[in-house]
């Protein structure tokens, strides 16, 4: 019979969360005991001894009211500050985090590594290295929850949300969907495998496939994106070289940071934020490219930020795929 009473601590943040919990438990136990003991003590000491007794009048003490307003308020401010500082950390992934993309759908988790590994309901990560998750959903709202890491983030359709963690202990940990998502909600579970870095490297090399950006490059050709988005900027649409992470000027004024959310939006509803100097010619790719495909494309566009575009390797195939894409 298993009877765990406390969850495993397997990430850098988990011990911090637990310390705050201990503090809160201590405060709560103190006040609960205070109230319970006071009630018991008064109830026994001042029990009614005759039916007609009228107790003496006790005047309300302003000092007492102030004391039991100010002390709890002070304590709650400690809780607020402490909780907020942890939340700050949870919300800011370190710059050197490794990137993993997560797509939730009823009722499975699809996880993609930059190196190209794709997993379903399983996530392999190395210990000792921050992992940043960029997540979206294909249908309803889900929530990515790993109790041993004390981390949880809703996965919302139509946008990217992010979270991060750094595993500290190799092991196998529950992955739950925490936001109710329909019939098989309780089946949308999986495992996170935290591995020693060398084991992780071995696991990575175990299933050699193209990287995400290579898949993205192929999709870029298949969808005929390259017909307009020419690397030298001579096409009808802006060049994507060096675009990721830069600040883009928009038609009609204003700027936007070309992050993952912007690129996703530009693929799925291109007319929303058109780059200054270009016509809103691009058709929407909603329905033609899956969320995973979008992730591939983003990974590819990210590599364009670092070095000039690679020449397409199979121009013939790209052209035929492009025609099918436009004919559908």
């Amino acid at each position: 019979m298993q009877l765990p009473l406390f969850p495993e601590q397997a990430s850098t943040i988990s011990t911090e969360v637990d310390h705050l919990l201990y503090f809160l438990v201590a405060v709560s136990v103190f006040f609960t005991l205070l109230i319970f003991l006071a009630i018991f003590y008064f109830a026994i000491k001042y029990r009614r001894r005759s039916e007609n007794e009228i107790p003496e009048h006790v005047h309300t003490g302003l000092t007492l009211e102030i004391v039991w307003t100010v002390i709890p308020f002070g304590l709650t401010m400690i809780m607020f500050t402490w909780g907020a500082s942890i939340f700050f950390k949870e919300s800011r992934p370190p710059d050197d985090s490794m990137q993993i993309y997560v797509v939730g759908k009823q009722w499975m988790w699809k996880l993609q590594h930059m190196e190209g590994q794709r997993e379903i309901n399983e996530l392999h990560i190395p210990v000792g290295r921050p992992v940043r998750l960029t997540m979206t959903s294909e249908d309803v709202i889900h929530s990515f929850f790993v109790p041993a890491f004390r981390t949880k983030q809703d996965v919302v359709p139509g946008r990217y949300t992010t979270t991060w963690f750094e595993a500290t202990k190799p092991g196998k940990y529950h992955l739950f969907c925490a936001e109710y998502c329909g019939t098989n909600h309780s089946g949308m579970i999986g495992w996170v495998y935290a591995m020693e870095p060398q084991d992780y490297q071995q696991w990575l090399s175990g299933a050699p496939k193209g990287t995400l950006s290579q898949a993205g490059a192929k999709l870029f050709e298949d969808l005929a994106c390259s017909n307009c988005h020419k690397p030298d900027g001579s096409g009808r649409c802006p060049s994507l070289v060096g675009v990721f992470g830069s600040t883009v000027k928009l038609a009609g004024g204003g700027t936007v940071k070309a992050d993952e959310a912007y690129i996703r939006e530009s693929i799925l509803s291109p007319a929303a934020k058109v780059v200054s100097g270009y016509e809103p010619l691009m058709p929407t790719f909603q329905g033609q490219v899956t969320e995973e495909g979008v992730v591939d494309l983003i990974a590819y566009i990210k590599t364009l930020a670092e070095k000039p575009a690679e020449q397409p390797s199979q121009p013939g195939i790209a052209a035929s795929a492009a025609s099918t894409a436009t004919n559908r």
């Binding site: 969360v17 705050l20 939340f87 004390r150 925490a178």
Partner: peptide, 16 residues
Amino acid sequence: TGLFVAALGIDVHVTD
């Protein structure tokens, strides 16, 4: 326990 769920760091873990 409302104080627990109002604390951001803890609520992330215990919400839902």
